[in-house]
Amino acid sequence: MRSRYFTALAVAVLLGSGMLVFAKPPAGSGSITGKVTYTGTPPKMKPIDMSKEPSCAKQHATPVLTENVATGPGNALQWVVVYISAGDQGSTAPSQAVRYDQKGCQYLPHVLPMQVDQGLQIYNDDQTSHNIHPLSKINAEWNKSQPPGSPAIDTKYDKPEFIPVKCNIHPWMHGYFIVLNTSHYAVSGEDGSFDIKGLPPGKYTVTAWQEQYPAQSQEVTISGSEAKTANFVFKVLPY
């Protein structure tokens, strides 16, 4: 614990000093906000039966639901990745790694966006072994077990790809690594809202990706420090 705290502190100090010493690349102040919703009847999310892994089952008072079409109030659609698919000038990956947790036999978060070459740290917070099997096709595929208490797996991806992640030991554990070429992305929350910040002026293609339904795109032009709105509506089916 302490060493993790120190690492975080060190990273923060380094980042801070980096910001002081080096001029940051021209970050804009434009933004795109919006809401992702659905029309139609969404499939019923199923309660996950974790009875085979009692140490996980007891962490959840009520059964966890599947998250492939996670909805919220007001027809909100959660876990949609909204990102700039064209028009971005590109930038080097941040030195801060993204963190992926296995906790209560769930992936936290369900969908994890990251930039190409950005560090990815995978932790097992459970009392049981997990195996992490990202089913990549473009990037190199791997499949490793992580027994409880073993060190974090440190890795990264060098090509953009939407990678389903699964744990074979607990087949219900299913998530996504979204490896993007851009640093401008957001994931829709429970209320379906998202917010992409720091966009320099320019003409952009904004794409919304959902794991089960076809992706959608919109053109958005930003001049100055505008805040534009882009809403996405997914048509869902009950089965």
Partner: peptide, 27 residues
């Protein structure tokens, strides 16, 4: 078959009415 949506058996409820009420559990 799609573990992510809990379809462990490969049911097709969209086209197969008999599959819609099938009960799938882990015990």
């Amino acid at each position: 078959i799609d573990d992510g949506s809990g379809n462990y058996f490969g049911l097709d409820p969209a086209n197969d009415i008999a599959a819609r009420d099938d009960i799938v559990v882990g015990s």
